[in-house]
Amino acid sequence: MLSVKNLSVQFPTDDGMVAALNGMDLQLHRGETVGLVGESGSGKSVTSQAIMGLFKETRAKISGEITFEGTDLLALSEDRMRTFRGKKIGMIFQDPLSAMHPFYTVGSQIAEAYRVHNKVSRKAAKQVAIDMLARVGIPDPKKRVDNYPHEFSGGMRQRAMIAMALVCEPELLIADEPTTALDVTVQAQILDLISELQAETNSAVIFVTHDLGVVAQLCQRVVVMYGGQCVEQASVREIFTAPSHPYTRGLMASMPHLSGEDDRLTPIPGSPPALLDLPSGCIFADRCEFAALVPDNRCQNERPQLLVTGEHAARCHGHEMSLLPKTIKVGA
């Protein structure tokens, strides 16, 4: 349904070109939930915004391919892209308070999203908004529809945001860190809501997050991103039981768990790469504990390709050459 191939996005800045995405690949099937995982600067949000066409008419330089149901989204004009936004692809954002217009009622913002793509009266659209609010679990939607965003609690706002994104029943929902700003008990409610709605509508979901736990709970497949590339993708079970890429392994080892006795974490040394000046070799090489195992400084000199083995893909010389240790190092 959605295919992203070799997508690169660069932003011109005063200090030079920031390479936010460097050959990103992503495939998505109908009804599937894919988690896009990575740390800050990994390009996960840029990927989702590029799919939404939000870089059109900006100074960003984009190359590569984004195909949605056979349509080349990158080639579309801003006007044609509009017929996809909201209607076929819906999007929700991290901070629902700033993502909603502070001066319009929640109901009118949902109704507006409906009326762009459907020719109905204001009254009918408002009824749609009320129904939608009820569907996302807002109590007393008839009254709440006339509230302003600041009159909602954080969790309710994100519910309203979801209502806004889903009101036209899009085939794809892009959720860009929708629970990061929320408390953990509210996050749990929102994750439940997203999976319930998805089961009902059978739409595909791209779930952008930095939290592997959220991925484990919600997604079928995971795409791990680092330095603007997909470094590994596999089913959730594969990623958690047999991660290939050293970065994925490092991420798991550095994550604190609620269960288990490992009371010392194993961090990844160093910090995420500077996107202004990316190395010509593997972007992770300078933090990778296995780079030394690969001969001829290949990791430093040559950018690895994404090697696909069945459903599992990884971008690593060491993995490709079968030089990585089989077991995952957990704890110390």
Binding site: S153, G155, M156, V184, T185, Q187, A188, Q189, L191, D192, D211, L212, G213, V214, A216, Q217, L218, V236, R237, F240, T241, M252, M255, H257, L258, S259
Partner: peptide
């Protein structure tokens, strides 16, 4: 409730109790 709300990476932990807090 707080502990049960934390998304777990243990894939089989989904079988344990899930407590959800309602309201605000």
């Amino acid at each position: 409730a707080l502990l049960s709300a934390v998304p777990s990476v243990e894939l089989d932990a989904a079988l344990t109790e899930r407590i959800r807090l309602g309201g605000d």
